[in-house]
Amino acid sequence: MKILITGASGNVGRYVVKELLNKGEGVVVAGTNVEKLKKIFGDKVDVVKFDFVDKETFHKALKDVDRVFLMRPPQLGKPEDLYPFIDSMKSHNIKLVSFLSLMGVEKNTIPPHHKIEKYIEKVQVPYAHIRPGFFMQNLSGIHSVEIKEKNEILIPAGKSKTSFIDTADIGLSVATLLHEPEKYKNTAHTITGPESLDYYQIAEILSEITGKKIMYRKPSFLKYRSDYIKKRGLDKNYVNVTVALYFMTRMGTAKMVTDEFYQLTGRKPRTFREFASENIDCFV
Rank of each mutant, 00 (worst) to 15 (best):
E19R: 14
I40T: 01
R67W: 01
K115V: 01
I94P: 07
K118I: 01
G233S: 06
G193S: 12
V239K: 11
G252S: 08
K36I: 01
S140K: 06
G133L: 07
K159P: 13
K268D: 08
N108R: 11
K212M: 10
S173V: 03
V105E: 08
L70W: 11
A188E: 12
R217M: 06
K90M: 07
E25C: 12
S91D: 14
E35H: 09
V174L: 06
E19H: 15
I153F: 10
L70E: 06
I214Y: 03
H179L: 09
A254I: 00
I5M: 10
T187H: 09
K63V: 05
S226F: 15
V29A: 02
A175N: 02
L62K: 02
I147C: 02
A203K: 00
D81T: 11
I116Y: 04
P112C: 05
K55D: 11
G13F: 06
E146S: 14
K231Q: 13
F99M: 11
V145K: 06
T176N: 10
L154N: 13
K55V: 08
R273I: 08
V123C: 06
A61W: 01
T242L: 15
N240D: 15
G42M: 10
E278W: 04
A8Q: 09
F261V: 07
V45R: 02
A168Q: 13
K122L: 13
F272N: 06
R270I: 06
I229F: 04
S144V: 10
Y83V: 02
V53P: 00
M256A: 15
L20Q: 11
I155H: 08
S277G: 00
P181L: 13
I170Q: 04
I110F: 13
N279A: 00
D81S: 14
E56M: 01
K148G: 02
Y216S: 02
K23H: 11
T242C: 02
K107W: 10
I120H: 10
K268V: 13
D166L: 04
E56T: 10
C282T: 01
E278P: 00
V27G: 05
V29W: 01
F99R: 08
G7R: 01
T176H: 09
A203I: 09
S98I: 00
R72C: 10
I202F: 14
F272T: 03
D235V: 03
H113S: 09
Y262P: 00
N279Y: 08
K38A: 02
K159A: 13
K255P: 03
C282A: 15
G193V: 07
